[in-house]
Design a protein around this nucleic acid. Structure first.
Lengths: 205, 205
DNA sequence: GCCCACAAGATTGTCAACAATTTCGGCAAC
DNA sequence: GTTGCCGAAATTGTTGACAATCTTGTGGGC
């Protein structure tokens, strides 16, 4: 695992808290790396939007506000909507089978009450749709955005009742794509993410 | 003007051609900067997607294929569509006046045959809409994407007849936003960028 | 007691030398 | 003539020391 990933993980896990100052010398000790490597890793993370840097004043973990999380999810909404539409156009029988299989697993995990597995399938589904769509540029953008959202979204996915709401939405997306119905696929994806946005707005803090 | 901007400009202007190797020592001489500065600037440009880097093999100007340009424009289509919708919701009288003013100038420049000015207004219009929308995250993403498109789009904007096609589209967008009609604004923006995509597809390489 | 100047310490930014890696040309073997 | 290997040159990657900048604490003046 390279240094950038390790620091990113530390941020996600809360080992490096939001707004915490990231002093290069400390990170050297913490991650056992030389200062130049830490430095390069930090500039990478600045590019990803996970870290904020002020010249001569050092870096800190960027705190994402709820408003920003909503903005990012709005962008996800339209971009993933585009991917869903293109996926509906491009999907093959093999792809359709994989989508349906994920749908089945989601249904199963929800019934079993295994929210972590359900959440993993959720991520898998979105990734697969992007892959089927062939929109590789979108993948990069979404991945970049996702980094900024992880903290908010993990909390969301595990909220009681949330999975029960999202399952039918996911199944609708899958069905529309398998039917090669671009418009319905885009609409279903947007409806799904609009519901995520609503849930975010109603989130406790 | 800082180093990153200067190198970026050199790429846009063709002083650094696509696929051209970027040898750090050469850039030092060309831009009168130390190697570490060149190095940092290059990693920034890698983050923007303008430069490609392979470990131990150096950096080169990334060549954007037509297919990629289309993908990026598709993303612009949906993201700027979102911004247009949000702008229609948020626009004030002041904003509406500014939009209409840009529309007037576009009409005027087209009539005068001044395509460069028209193109500048075009950029101004899209930027203003994003600003009115308040979707700051979208701004960052579009700016990042725009870098990858400039070469294709400049060629496009100056194509004879192109401005005549895009003017009514721009005016329709402005009108919908000033009417506070979210749906129509989004649809108009998407139609406009879909037409850009079509033009790209038909572009002579 | 409060505020400002100033110095010491902490931290980031820059540089030049060195190490590691790849590329390229020539030479021998087949 | 072609292929493969070796070494030199070119290029990138890394390091540690030093410079520049910001922060913090201290003391004097009011």
């Amino acid at each position: 695992m390279n240094l950038v990933d390790r620091i990113r993980t530390a941020i996600f896990d809360g080992d490096l808290a939001p707004n915490q100052r990231l002093i290069e010398a400390d990170l050297c000790a913490q991650f056992g790396a030389s200062r130049s490597h830490i430095r390069n890793a930090l500039t990478d993370l600045v590019g990803e939007g996970l870290v904020e840097r002020i010249p001569h004043r050092g870096a800190r973990v960027r705190a994402i506000t709820l408003a920003e999380a909503i903005e990012f999810t709005e962008i996800r909404m339209v971009v993933e909507g585009l991917c869903a539409a293109k996926a509906a156009q491009a999907v093959t029988e093999v792809g359709a089978a994989m989508l349906r299989s994920i749908g089945e697993r989601m249904r199963h995990h929800l019934a079993a009450g295994d929210l972590l597995e359900y959440s993993a399938c959720n991520k898998e589904l979105h990734t697969l749709i992007r892959r089927i769509s062939g929109q590789s540029a979108a993948g990069d953008i979404i991945e970049r955005i996702r980094g900024n959202l992880t903290r908010h979204q993990v909390r969301l996915a595990l909220r009681p009742g949330r999975a029960a709401v999202s399952l039918p939405q996911h199944l609708a997306i899958i069905e529309a794509i398998c039917d090669h119905d671009e418009e319905r696929a885009e609409a279903a994806m947007r409806a799904h993410l609009r519901s995520v946005i609503e849930a975010l707005k109603n989130a406790p803090r």
